[in-house]
Amino acid sequence: MFRYANPAVFMRLSGVLLPWVSGAAAILLAVGLWSSFHVPPDYQQGMTVTIMFVHVPAAIVAEAAYGAIAVASLFSLVWRHPLADTAARAAAPLGAVFTALGLVTGSLWGRPMWGAYWVWDARLTSFLLLLFLYLGYMALWNAIEDEARAARAAAILALVGAVNLPIIKFSVDWWNTLHQGESIVSGQIASVFLLPLGLMAFGYMLLFAALWMVRIRTEIVNRRARSLMQRAG
């Protein structure tokens, strides 16, 4: 496993994988979107249910990205992998964008459902907090100038955040039942919705994977360019 953590090996491997992953993501998203528009209207929500197909996968990826950062951070702290730092840092803005996408689509969904763009729904609220976690994490990375030190500090923060995230989710759910909030997805999802939802979820994940690879590759190339320039100077 550590063999692949070598930047040179990663560049070669990701160079081969990237076109396939991006292609698969594009096809899945296209098919997923097409089938999303061809589901029968929900008996309660009508066609607004379509928003679910862009909202739920975004939410899944947003959380998975934080998990990926936490795992990469663990690798960075325990095994001191330079590539793990790069991977964690590269995932953060992506995770933040997917979280924001989840929030925007969620509130667009909420408008016809509840008549308001923002309702303190348990899931939306935890995603808002998740967005702040991402912002804090990125801010810490940018605030510390020494890169090695920034990497380790950010890794510690990511792990603390990962431990806290389930507690935050639990507390928000608890708070929500206390205040009798509403939930977007209540009860069972009709089986006709499962296929487009699954396609979209896979598509989002591959899209995330492709973008993540691109960002890691960019950072590796940048770093090489920097060290070349330093040497020339």
């Binding site: 976690l133 804090g136 810490l140 605030a143 923060l157 955040g161 928000v172």
Partner: peptide, 26 residues
């Protein structure tokens, strides 16, 4: 985490407050 930062006080709330949501809620 921010002890070496000249203006750590600015970034500190951003890092800490989301983590403290459970305390405020409970």
């Amino acid at each position: 985490l921010t002890l070496s930062l000249k203006r750590g006080g600015l970034i500190l709330p951003l890092i800490i407050l989301p983590l403290l949501a459970p305390a405020v809620i409970f």
